[in-house]
Amino acid sequence: MDKPSLLILDDEKEVLNALNRVLRKHFQLYLFSDANEAIGFYQDNPNIPLILTDMRMPVMDGATFLGKIIDINPHCKRFLLTGHADINLTVTAVNEGKICHY
């Protein structure tokens, strides 16, 4: 049986490595530390149904990234991961990234 595909974006390599170890048995993973590379990949592979991103990143925050993903495929499920609880970021993530889970 095929594993569901999951694209993960996080600017910290250690976090990507940890998520890879935990999730690789259950998902076909596509891991990125650069938002623009992840968007380019997703444009070529818009049928990946699950997207997980960090919120705070240096070039593009997670809400902005998810907004761009929505433009490509509004039907994918979007999840936001963060180590910083911030109500303003949560509101931005809900409004711009239309996240499924925070």
Rank of each mutant, 00 (worst) to 15 (best):
I99M: 08
V59Q: 11
P74H: 14
T64A: 13
K77I: 15
E12H: 05
G62Y: 01
K25H: 09
P49S: 15
T92W: 07
I99P: 00
R21T: 09
V22N: 01
T64W: 03
Y102D: 00
G67L: 09
M55E: 09
H84Y: 15
N73I: 09
L23Y: 05
F41E: 06
E12T: 06
K98S: 13
L29S: 05
D71I: 06
A85F: 15
V15G: 00
A35Y: 00
L6M: 05
D2F: 13
L80K: 10
L23K: 02
P74I: 10
D86C: 14
I48G: 04
R24W: 06
D10I: 02
L7I: 11
A85V: 15
R78K: 14
C76F: 09
G62H: 05
L23T: 03
D34S: 12
Q43G: 12
I99T: 03
D10P: 00
T82W: 06
A85W: 13
M60Y: 04
I8P: 00
H84K: 14
H101C: 11
H84I: 13
Y30I: 05
T53E: 01
H101R: 14
F65R: 04
Y102T: 01
V15T: 07
C76D: 05
M1V: 14
P74L: 13
K3T: 05
L23R: 01
F27L: 04
L6K: 00
P4V: 02
L6E: 00
K77L: 15
N95P: 06
M60E: 06
L80E: 08
N45Q: 11
V91Q: 11
L66T: 03
A85Q: 15
L50C: 03
N17R: 12
I72D: 04
G67N: 13
F41R: 06
I70Y: 10
A38M: 02
D11W: 01
T90L: 15
V91C: 04
A93G: 11
T53N: 02
I51R: 07
L66D: 01
R78S: 05
I51A: 07
L19R: 01
V94E: 07
L7D: 01
Q43S: 10
S5F: 05
L16F: 03
V59T: 08
G83A: 15
H84S: 12
I48Y: 06
L19H: 02
N20R: 15
Q43C: 12
L89Q: 08
N73H: 09
L89E: 08
L52R: 05
M60C: 05
P49L: 13
M60T: 08
D11N: 12
Y42E: 02
A63I: 03
I69E: 07
N20Y: 15
C100R: 14
A63C: 08
C76K: 07
D44M: 13
I51C: 07
Y42K: 02
A18N: 06
I69N: 08
I39L: 13
D86F: 12
L52D: 02
A18H: 04
F27W: 01
E37R: 10
I51N: 06
F79R: 11
A38N: 03
G40S: 12
N17T: 09
K25P: 00
P49I: 13
L50P: 00
R24V: 10
G67M: 11
H75F: 12
L7T: 02
R78T: 05
A93I: 09
G83E: 05
H26P: 00
V59G: 05
F27C: 02
H75M: 09
D11L: 03
A35K: 00
